Simulated assay, not measured.
Amino acid sequence: MRGGHVPVPPAGVPRPARAEAGRVRTWVSAGPVDLGLVLGPLRRGPGDPTFRAMPDGSVWRASLTPSGPGTLRVSVVPGGGAVRGEAWGPGGEWLLDGMPDLLGASDEPEAFAPRHRVVALARHRRPGLRLTRTGLVLESLIPSVLEQKVTTDEAYRAWRLLVRKFGEPAPGPAAGGRLWVMPAPRTWALIPSWEWHRAGVDDKRASTILRAVRVAARMEEASGMEAGAAQTRLELVPGIGPWTSAETVQRSHGAADAVTVGDLHLPGIVGWALAGNRSADDAEMLELLEPYAGQRHRAARLILLSGRVPERRAPRMTRGDIGKL
C-alpha cells in the first residue's frame, strides 16, 4: 500500500460498554494523531486478518506478543488529543504498555526539515503523520518476505490464507470476531509444503520464513537494537536482504532513515517527484534523498503520500498463482 494510509472514519459517538470489557489505557499525544496514517503501514491489504479499521473510527490489531496473543483497540477521543486503548488476552498488558510507541510517541517528526516543495506540501497536508514502532520483528518480517518479487495482491492473499488457517482467533471481542493472531514460530515451522503451495508461496520465500522462525528469539532480540544493527542481524538469514530488512525495521523500530532499496517502483517515484526523472535507479534515489539523511524513509513516505507519481508506461507485473499449478 503505497504511502501506508488506511481510511479511518472520524471518531463517532461514545460507544456503550462492552459485555467483555478489556484493560483500558488513555494516552495524550503531544500533537495530532491520524490513526490511518500512523497505523496504515501495518495493514497488509484490505483483508488482513490481523487488522481492522471500523466505522466507529477505531482501529483493531491482533498481535503475538512476548506475553502471548493479544488484541488492541485504539480510538481517538472526540474533542481532544487523547487516544483510548482497550486490550484483551495474555498479551493485552504488553500491547497497552507499547501503545504510545505504536502511535508514534518515540518518533521525532519535528526533526524533519523539508527541502523540496512537494515534500513540504505533503507534510503540511498530513500533520498527523508519525512513524509507528511495534517492538515486534516477526510480525513485520514474515509478511515482508511474502512480498518479495511478487505483486502485492499475491502477497496479501498468501498472508491472509496462512494466518486464517494456521493462526488463532484473537482474544476478546476482536472486531466482532473477525481478527486472527498470526501463527507462533513453531507453527510456521510445521506448515506442510503443500500448504505454502496452495497459498501461492514459492519454495524460496517459504524457505526464508522457515529459516527466520528457527531463530525466532534472535530475530525478536533485534527489536531492542538500533535500527541499522537490527537490519544487519536480520540479513544474516539467507533470503533476507536490504529490501526486506528495511521494510521490517520501518515498522518494528519506527526507523526514520531506513529507506527501501531494491524496490521495483520507489526509485522512479522519488526520481520523478524530486528531479522529473522517472527512470531513476537506487543510486540516484539515494543521492536525491541525501539532504534528508537520518530521515530518508520519512521523506520517501511523504513523497508517496503526495500522490505525485509518474504515469504507468508498462503493463502491471504479471500476477501468478503457483497454487493452481
Rank of each mutant, 00 (worst) to 15 (best):
G271P: 11
M317C: 04
P169I: 12
R157M: 11
R123T: 01
D101Q: 12
G68R: 05
G307D: 12
D97L: 14
G91Q: 04
A229Y: 04
V201M: 04
L304I: 09
L39N: 06
K204M: 10
L190Y: 00
R313M: 10
V119W: 01
L141K: 04
P32W: 03
L274E: 13
W60P: 03
A87L: 00
W194L: 06
V38N: 06
A30K: 11
R308E: 09
V215M: 09
P10G: 13
W194Q: 05
R125P: 00
V213M: 03
V33F: 02
R164H: 05
V33E: 10
G172F: 03
P315C: 02
W94Q: 05
A217H: 02
A283Q: 13
G135H: 09
A227S: 14
E221C: 01
F166S: 05
T71S: 14
R15E: 15
P49V: 11
T187L: 05
L35M: 14
A21W: 01
I142M: 02
P183L: 04
R211P: 00
W27V: 15
V118G: 02
P7F: 06
E139Y: 01
S63W: 15
L35Q: 14
R117W: 14
R123K: 12
V6F: 00
E220P: 01
A230F: 04
G70T: 00
L96S: 11
M182G: 07
V6G: 01
S67R: 10
L131E: 15
S29C: 10
P49Y: 07
R117P: 05
L96C: 08
V201D: 02
P10Q: 13
L39I: 05
D101V: 03
G104V: 08
A105I: 04
W94P: 01
H197A: 08
M285S: 04
P69I: 12
G323W: 13
K149N: 14
L64K: 06
R52D: 00
W159G: 00
